[in-house]
């Protein structure tokens, strides 16, 4: 519940302050958001599975974001930023789908 409130608070902050993304962060923010979403869905699923661990969630969240950003950064340095970003997004999307499928099984038994 607290986490949901925090999420809503973040959304409200973003709406209220209307910040613009710094140029240096522009390639990384979308990937980081997707990675964080993956971590959140993983956390929800682990919660439903009864194996949620907050430490692990925090670490996975942070490292997901960092690794995703690092991969994009590396890709940019190597000149394959676009392709690598696509790859990261595809992998994370697949994982999100899997997690959502797990959540669905828990909630709807189907």
């Amino acid at each position: 519940m607290f986490a949901v409130l925090a999420l809503i608070a973040g959304v409200v902050l973003g709406i209220v302050f209307k910040p613009s993304v710094p140029l240096a962060l522009q390639p990384y923010l979308p990937i980081a958001v997707v990675a964080a979403l993956d971590a959140v869905f993983g956390g929800i699923r682990a919660r439903l599975d009864g194996i949620f661990d907050d430490q692990q969630f925090v670490i996975s969240f942070v490292s997901n974001v960092l690794v995703a950003a690092l991969i994009v950064y590396l890709g940019d340095q190597l000149g394959v930023g676009t392709q690598l970003s696509t790859g990261v997004v595809v992998v994370l999307g697949v994982r999100i789908f899997g997690n959502v499928a797990g959540i669905r099984r828990h909630l709807f038994r189907a």
């Binding site: 607290f2 986490a3 949901v4 409130l5 925090a6 999420l7 809503i8 608070a9 973040g10 959304v11 409200v12 902050l13 973003g14 709406i15 209307k18 910040p19 613009s20 993304v21 522009q26 923010l29 979308p30 980081a32 958001v33 964080a36 979403l37 959140v40 907050d54 430490q55 969630f57 925090v58 969240f61 942070v62």
Partner: peptide, 23 residues
Amino acid sequence: AGALIGVLLALLGFGLVVQLRSN
């Protein structure tokens, strides 16, 4: 850890909205 999770999720919502807006 709970507080951290809250902060992280707030960051996530923030980043999500910011990215949506800039897009």
